[in-house]
Nucleic acid binder design. Structure first.
Lengths: 186, 186, 186, 186
DNA sequence: AATGAATGAGACTTCATTCAT
DNA sequence: AATGAATGAAGTCTCATTCAT
């Protein structure tokens, strides 16, 4: 693994454990086994490191969800994407928690978030539009619906990460999707 | 307004603008028009200041929601609490954002949160239990349902605070509640 | 002496000894017997410390020269100001060297310098103008003449500071003034 | 142009713009279009780079002044050297400013300077000695006279570089030489 | 000759907190 | 209760220099 990647991985872990502000660049470098200067050679500032991490993680999540096209009815497809996302979150708990950390500290704007979703996960707004057109989904304003997808997913993922003993309990998994699905569907 | 309250109010604003870690006690004191020492006279440490603010804000929100008992059907009651909470959030946007800030930085545990909700807003779990018993609400695990109430409310409040132009648009307001209600109810 | 003044005095000495860039703020603080933070309490940045020192020194020099009005012929008056300035420089060698240090590093513009001179030492341009009007001084462009006064004085002062054994030698002192005076006078 | 020369040229420009201490070797290398290592391949240390630049510039100035022997009276000869030096300075403004920069930062001693002048520009002390012997120049101590030549020239050059609009104005050019010449001559 | 990632000491600055007044 | 100068540990970032390629 390149030093750059060592730094990214170490930083992710420490940020989630201690918070971003509370994690010193020197600590990251030390634990990653590189010199302080090396960190700043690859990332001009701590903010750049955070940004690089953020973009990387988001892209990974998107990849995991969009690996292959979903099939079946609208509900089926939604379910497939949902479960893939949740599975990825459960196998990369730090990455997801980091996404939430940045979400707040970074003044991540609602509109910016929607833009990011539309770019990385274009099937989400597409599914929403199709569902409303077909009368399967309630006619909720598009931006509100998109926000709902995001917040429901994040909330469910956080819940299962915090309580891993329920992550494989089918009742919880079913319920989590049901909460999401019925909020939008008739 | 007492110096103590000036400090609290100023701190809330700066915390929301800049983040908690990024706001220096000296800056709070200066903008509040008091000496550095005065801040530490009232709050032994920065953490104490944050805690005092947090407890105060949470209590205010609880007061606003529980001001008077809700009436009517279960759906009616839920709607009344929901709207009261949303109205309070919209008239105290900083306070709500601060709640979210602390939520993250403070490693606020899921279980702690549920405990806090149950103490301050005991009617929430009560309504959930009654709804499920009466067959109005889907039989979702209680902790998941409670988490859902919290996250849906926070998400809706954040949405309207970020886009105040929709806060008085009845379609948006209706939709926001619908998303919440149908996620739980049959 | 106040801590602020201790810092200023120590900084002056170290800057002249080692250069401005080569002197660490921590070293200044330590040698001044104060904490690092104290330096930054009084001077928000190293640049501010340098600026404060610069202004203070310039004002002192001006005070020393303009302590009392000069008397006699134009040549007499010039001589009096010249000697007063030189005496001050010789008793405050560090201060003068610091002035030169800043002059270069600080991109001190010719025009800014003339402005500063005109404000702090208004008698200099006044004497130049009177001398040219009376036909005692050669008709040299005013800005060039002012620059000449400045550079001749600085050069002479630096010479005597570097070779203090000549500072009380009347031949050297006479010659230094002669070089200055005859460059401008008929 | 060889990489070595690219480095020298770029370094000169940056040193003058930003100061020597404030210019990073990495910046020089980048702007010169070479790798960091390449700079240190040609110049073992930053100090060596500065020294190489300094010696080169000084030699160029000496060459320009001593290109051909001056002719005519002592005043004529002085004038020829003076104008040649000024012309060179005006066509190499950065080089001259760099000379001044080093002068200060490097604790360039008065005596060292005199030695350097005597080696590179041997005609200067020679002319001074001849002039005093012939009674054309005032009997000023030799070291003071040499210092005067240096400082007057530097000051005039800096003045014209800062205000290039006067550099071709014959009144200014005449005056500048007059200030120099009459300071030394009867 | 040329490259550029890597190094780590050290620079400037911040900031929660204390304490004499 | 109120003040604000003082503290010093700790943080982010810089930079001359090295070295394997």
């Amino acid at each position: 693994m390149s030093k750059r990647d060592q730094i990214l991985e170490t930083a992710l872990g420490l940020f989630v454990e201690q918070g971003i502000a509370a994690t010193a660049t020197a600590q990251i470098a030390k634990q990653a086994g590189v010199a302080t200067g090396t960190l700043f050679h690859h990332f001009p500032s701590k903010a750049d490191l955070v940004a690089a991490l953020y973009l990387g993680v988001k892209a990974q999540l998107a990849d995991a969800m969009a690996a292959e096209a979903a099939e079946g009815t609208l509900a089926d497809q939604a379910r497939q994407y949902w479960e893939r996302g949740l599975d990825w979150a459960l196998s990369h708990p730090g990455a997801l928690q980091f996404l939430q950390l940045v979400g707040l500290q970074g003044h991540e704007d609602t509109q910016l978030r929607h833009q990011a979703i539309s770019e990385l996960l274009p099937f989400v707004p597409a599914l929403l539009a199709r569902g409303q057109a077909e009368g399967v989904l309630r006619p909720v304003p598009a931006d509100l619906a998109l926000e709902q997808c995001h917040s429901q997913f994040m909330s469910a993922a956080a819940f299962f990460i915090a309580q891993p003993e329920h992550a494989r309990d089918s009742q919880y998994r079913e319920s989590a999707f049901a909460l999401f699905w019925h909020s939008l569907a008739y």
